[in-house]
């Protein structure tokens, strides 16, 4: 097991390296030079020169890349062109918002999707199954921003309820924080619940047809044991794979939801960076989000091996 973990961790190094090179290379493709973009027309040639040296932009590309990566490894993502503040602490503050949103969103989607998916499979072709299939199809077809607007509009017009403005961190005031976070997390959860529901349903249906389920029933097992101990445990492997892949959709969805609900998360920071042409911020945020995504995928892979005894660690 230990060797397997180490091997999987080593395997992500080239991907991380590739991701960072890609981000760096793409940033270099930006037309015009970054400094004039940031300064606009006001900057004097001297100021421009000073900033170019400060950001190391006078050095050859590979040196710039190595300096950037070495900094990143020490938690130094450079300074914002706008505020001149270091990027990393700001990023960490905002990451806590994004992390809370994604985790709550994921939990909500699992709580909704997995039980409904199981019910649909055990009541195949009955009313509940049809409902689940329609719900799932709607879920995968409604973009998160559209659902957010519908929900906000509905609450405002019908209940005259407006989502509280302004963000409060969980550690400051947990109740207020959850009040703020519940609606965005719910929307985020619903938009990914559809595909988990489908996967749970089809995976359960497949497992329920397998021979060993008949053996379990022939032993005199109750339906509860047959479904939850045996069928679900086996059906979980593809569900976990999907859940891992969906972390990407969650992080991407968070970018949009943060914008709509004015939550100061990483996605909002990235978008603001793009709008203000604050390239070090964009570069740092994109790298960080990709890193989180890769990390979560690694964790699901390891979990997968932990759950399925057939995966050998050698």
């Amino acid at each position: 097991m230990r060797n397997y973990v180490i091997r999987r961790i080593l395997q992500i190094i080239p991907v991380l390296l590739g991701v960072s090179i890609l981000i760096f290379a793409v940033m270099k493709l930006i037309p015009g030079d970054v400094i004039s973009g940031a300064l606009g027309v006001e900057g004097s040639p001297e100021l421009r020169q000073a900033l170019t040296v400060k950001y190391g932009l006078d050095k050859p590309y590979h040196v710039q890349y190595i300096n950037w990566i070495l900094g990143v490894l020490h938690g130094d993502f450079g300074d914002s062109l706008r505020t001149s503040e270091p990027i990393f602490p700001e990023m960490m503050r905002r990451f806590s918002v994004t992390a809370e949103l994604t985790i709550l969103g994921a939990l909500i989607s699992w709580i909704i999707a997995i039980p409904l998916g199981i019910l649909a499979a055990t009541h195949r072709n009955k009313g509940i199954d049809r409902f689940v299939r329609v719900f799932a199809l709607m879920g995968v077809s409604i973009p998160s921003f559209a659902l957010s607007i519908l929900v906000i509009l509905f609450l405002a017009l019908v209940f005259s309820y407006f989502s509280p403005l302004g963000y409060v961190s969980f550690f400051e005031n947990p109740v207020k924080n959850l009040q703020i976070m519940i609606l965005p997390s719910f929307v985020l959860g619903i938009t990914i619940a559809g595909s988990i529901m489908r996967m749970t349903r089809s995976s359960m249906l497949e497992v329920l047809q397998q021979d060993f389920i008949k053996t379990v029933r022939a032993k005199g097992a109750s339906e509860r044991i047959t479904i939850f101990k045996h069928a679900l445990r086996n059906a979980f492997i593809p569900i976990i794979t999907l859940i891992g892949m969906q972390i990407g959709s969650l992080l991407g969805g968070a970018v949009i939801i943060e914008q709509i609900f004015s939550l100061p998360g990483l996605g909002q920071m990235t978008l603001t960076g793009i709008n203000q042409r604050d390239y070090p911020v964009v570069q740092g945020c994109v790298l960080f989000i990709a890193f989180i995504y890769i990390l979560v995928n690694l964790i699901t892979d390891l979990l997968y091996a932990y759950i399925d005894p057939r995966i050998s660690y050698n």
């Binding site: 060993f212 053996t215 445990r233 005894p309």
Partner: peptide, 19 residues
């Protein structure tokens, strides 16, 4: 089932839960 009447199946490779 399993107490007074038991059953064994054709495909032993798939008749047991792999988990």
């Amino acid at each position: 089932r399993g107490k007074e009447i038991s059953m064994i199946f054709q495909e032993p490779m798939t008749a047991l839960d792999p988990m």
